[in-house]
Amino acid sequence: MIRVHRATFAYRPGEPVLAGIDLEIPGGLTLLLGPNGCGKSTLLKLIAGIERPDSGLVEIDGHDLWTDEVAARRGLAYVPEQPDLTPYATVREILGLVCRLRGEPQSAAEEALEFVGLRDLAHRSVRELSMGQRRRSVLAAALIGTPRHVLLDEPLEAMDRGARDAILAWIDRLLAAGATVVAVSHDLAPFAPRAHRAATVRAGHCRLADPLPDDPAARLALLEHMARGEPFP
């Protein structure tokens, strides 16, 4: 369970992005929707432990992200939209770090590299990789271990058809295993059938639609409504 309690956040004083978010996310796929700049990615960063809320708290399975840092992040995997990787390391070194921190053998890194098709580039510095290759690198990191909480920010963006299918299949396996998956995506069609609930961020606040309509057309229509930031019943 991911729990966000009265979380507020501003990058600059006096310009709040999130103004008191209350959200509980159980297992299954939760879509985070809304227009550009509404705070979806920022909320995802709060849940991922990238940014610390100015007030309020974020808990992962009962562990506070900022007072119980290691335990809260142990089962967490975050795939950002912009793959920020240190330019001073190779892909293999970064995945080696992930293996070490998650208590996984180094062979898990090799398997992840194989899955994302980067085995031949693993020795390369991050500086030498294209944007698509960097995105695959952070995806590979998310594959290491058995993450129970997976946060995805535009996971299908700039991915070829084969990669998209592989990512969706991976998400299906996560959901089948009972994981919590939170995804930000402007591309709704692949996720609409899989989603259990959706949340929209608007004016710094969050609203949850749970459950979603069973009818596929009604479900997609509601999700598109939420993605445009329009009020919904």
């Binding site: 960063k45 991922a48 432990g49 990238i50 940014e51 840092e69 290691v70 335990a71 992040r73 142990r74 967490l76 995997a77 975050y78 950002p80 793959p83 920020d84 990787l85 240190t86 001073y88 770090l97 992930v98 921190l101 998650r102 952070v138 946060l151």
Partner: peptide, 15 residues
């Protein structure tokens, strides 16, 4: 030369 690395803060290690 080594600014903060945001994504790394999601990994299971402490400040």
């Amino acid at each position: 030369r080594r600014p903060a690395w945001p994504w790394a803060r999601s990994l299971p290690w402490s400040a």
